[in-house]
Each structure stands twice: as C-alpha cells, then as structure tokens.
Design a protein around this nucleic acid. Sequence first.
DNA 1: CTATATATGTCGAGG
DNA 2: CCTCGACGTATATAG
Lengths: 231, 231
Amino acid sequence: MRLVVAKCSVDYAGRLSAHLPLATRVLMLKQDGSLLIHSDGGSYKPLNWMSPPCTLATEEPEKDQADVGVTEIWRVTHAKTADMLVVSIYEIYNDVEHELGEDPGLIKNGVEAELQELLAAQIELLGEGYTLVRREYFTAIGPVDILARDENGNSVAVEIKRRGEIDGVEQLTRYLELMNRDPHLAPVTGVFAAQEIKPQAKTLAEDRGIRTLILDYDEMRGIEDKHGRLF
Amino acid sequence: MRLVVAKCSVDYAGRLSAHLPLATRVLMLKQDGSLLIHSDGGSYKPLNWMSPPCTLATEEPEKDQADVGVTEIWRVTHAKTADMLVVSIYEIYNDVEHELGEDPGLIKNGVEAELQELLAAQIELLGEGYTLVRREYFTAIGPVDILARDENGNSVAVEIKRRGEIDGVEQLTRYLELMNRDPHLAPVTGVFAAQEIKPQAKTLAEDRGIRTLILDYDEMRGIEDKHGRLF
DNA sequence: CTATATATGTCGAGG
DNA sequence: CCTCGACGTATATAG
C-alpha cells in the first residue's frame, strides 16, 4: 500500500469518460495495482479509481505537459476491459509506503440472508399453525424468499427485506400475480416482512391485501440462541 | 485529511453489526470527521467506514483493553442515526496529515443520454417505416424517452436503458397504461431498448406485450474514437 | 462462467 | 424532507 498526497489532474476513459481538474488529492495505490483517488470529503466512494485487475505504468511527461508543470504521469490500465485512468502529477507533498499483508476480512450480522434463515426457523411468527414449505421458492421471474402454508393449508408467499420500501411490495405483487395463475398454488396470499417498513410501503401493501410484519432481529436471534443452548 | 497506518480491530453497530479482527490497515480520516478503513486489496469500497455527518472522539482504553495491547480507541458516532464505529488501535506505524482544500469535482459524460440521442437519430432501428415524434415526450408521471410512430402511424413509446432490468419494464408499463387512456395517443405499443436485457426483464416485457430491442452502442456510434478521448 | 438479488449501497434530480 | 432512478455500481451466491 502506497499513499501519496499530490497536486494532480485526472482523466478516465471507460464506460464513461470523466475529468478531474487540477487539485490536491490523496492517491491510494494498492498491492494489486488498483488506484483510488480521494478528496477530503464525500463518502467512501473515491472521486475516481481503477479496480483490479490492472497495471500501473509511470511515464515521463511530454514536453508540452512538462512546460505546464507536470512532473510525472501515472497510467493505470485495466487488464480486461481496456479502461484507462491517467493521473498527471504536478507536485508530490507526501509519499508513504507500508506493507499491510492479507486482511482477515469483515464479519457481518443482521443482513437479509440471516433474517430469512431466522424467519424460516421461526415460521410460527407468521401466525398460529403456519408451516414452512421452503425458502427460495423459484418462479419464472425470480425466487420468493419463503413459501409457507397458513393454518388452512393455503399458500403464503413471504418477501423479506431489511428495510421495507415500495420496491419490495412491487416485487411481492409480481410474484403473487404469477403464482395465483398456477392452479397448484392458488390462492396465494402475501406477507411483507422487514425490520422496518416505510409508511408508503405499508400503505401500498395493505391496499393490495398484503399483510405486513415487523421482524425484531434481536428478539429472533435471542430465541435462536436459546434454542441452540438447549442442545 | 489524516492518513494512519495502524494495527487495529474494528467494531461497527448500525444498520447491521460487523467486526474486523486485528490486522494492519489504513485509516483515512477526512475533514468532515468521516473515516474509511482500507485494506490492501478489494475494490474501492472500504472494509468499514462511517459516513458524514459524524464526529470522532479519541479515548483511553479501559485497563483490560490496555492489558491486551490497545493503545487508543477511536469512537466515530453518526450525528443522526446513532450508528457507531469503534476502532481499537494497537500500534501506529505511520501518521500523516495534509490540508487538501475543497475539490473542484468530477466532470462526467454518461452513456444513457448518448444512447437516446443515437436512437433518435437512427429511429429506423425500431423497424421499417418508423418515424420520430419526439424525445423526452412528457407525461404526468414523467418523460417517455422516445415517442415514435410505426409504419401504420400508431404511437410507440420507447424506454431506453443501458442495462434492461425489471424496473425498466415496470416504468414503461406505467407510461403505456397512462398513455393508452389518452384517446389522442391510443393505441400505444411499447419497445424496451437497452444495450443488454436481463432474461427476467425480457420475460416480463413479453408477458406484457412489450417488444424488446438490443442496442449495439459501438455500432450506433460508428466505432469511432472509443479510447481516443484521453488526448 | 452467467445470472440474480443484496447493499451500512452512494449519488443526484425533482417534488 | 422524501422518493425515485442511475451507477464505471460492487459483491456474494446459486446454477
């Protein structure tokens, strides 16, 4: 990992073309040849970058570039797509290199996959007498998160989100429409389950006869832990 | 902008909870208090981060933490959501600070706008005898990318995407529904045009009687200076 | 490898 | 402020 603070301008050509005017920025050069160009604001997204696999070549500036103050040129070329990033460096204020080694990586909890597992294991949260048919029930337009049966044996399609927004209701609506054309499944009702459901999504769901359900992650995980400890 | 190379472990609690085991990483501290934690690989996305608005507080470690080698603790708290990122620092190998100033920002040239221009100019790609009515035909729920007429003089609404996914079909469906209620326009048929159309989107479009059309960007552009823009 | 859904998505436009 | 759509989306996972 090499960290350079430099006055530079940048040009990118690939899926789009883009240009960064002359300013002072941080250039982060990773071991794999990739390059990130950060300013002192914005969020985690760099102003510009090149993803691996790619190679960096350092070049001498042409005379006309040297005349306007360019001291070196970094040309980063993507190995597969021929995307190219060219950094024209005017002045380097700081240049540090350090060996980091392999990173053990991030451990996550509470993403949608985990919610789906938990709800499948605690299908009774949908209601008394509900049973799990299967997770990831496949249809022609995509997988339904959970297919269950209610206390009367009727099909119930469950769409799970971390945050329930209108998109998710639309998605479930499409599934229901399709599944209700299948005489083996129909009638199919819908449940929209999420840790948090936006008011508009709740309204839309109810308007379409879809039940909404708030999932309490901590509670569900707690129950699961207790189950685990019983064994 | 402060750049720190340090051995650290990290914990995040917010929309999800996550943990980074002890390793050497780069900590990028921006002027607005935001923090990025980068390893020497991956793409431009940090391993972990806190977006602005947020504040950084440096704390002394508790005794039990100090005993295992923690020298300082950085606690970054989001100003609105109460998301929290805690960095436990064991050793600092490098620590640099530099004033960058405001960045003038990125200048972009996108692809989708160009696709729309090109298709309007080459409207015959839609079929024999088609004529352009106008680009950005305005409806109550938004602009239709292109309105054309087919060889019989009937209205055709075209939705253009770089990548055709289900969302785009939904969008076009809404336009068609609305436009077909207008006796001056009806009957209106739809064409979903994109550089690439996902199978699910194609299925849904056909199910709704919408024609799909693959656009060859390079061909439409005439395979001119694709990479010649840099210099 | 392709295809698909998720994401602490981020980001910008527009009501 | 919120919603919606685009993104050089990236990323993991299933087929």
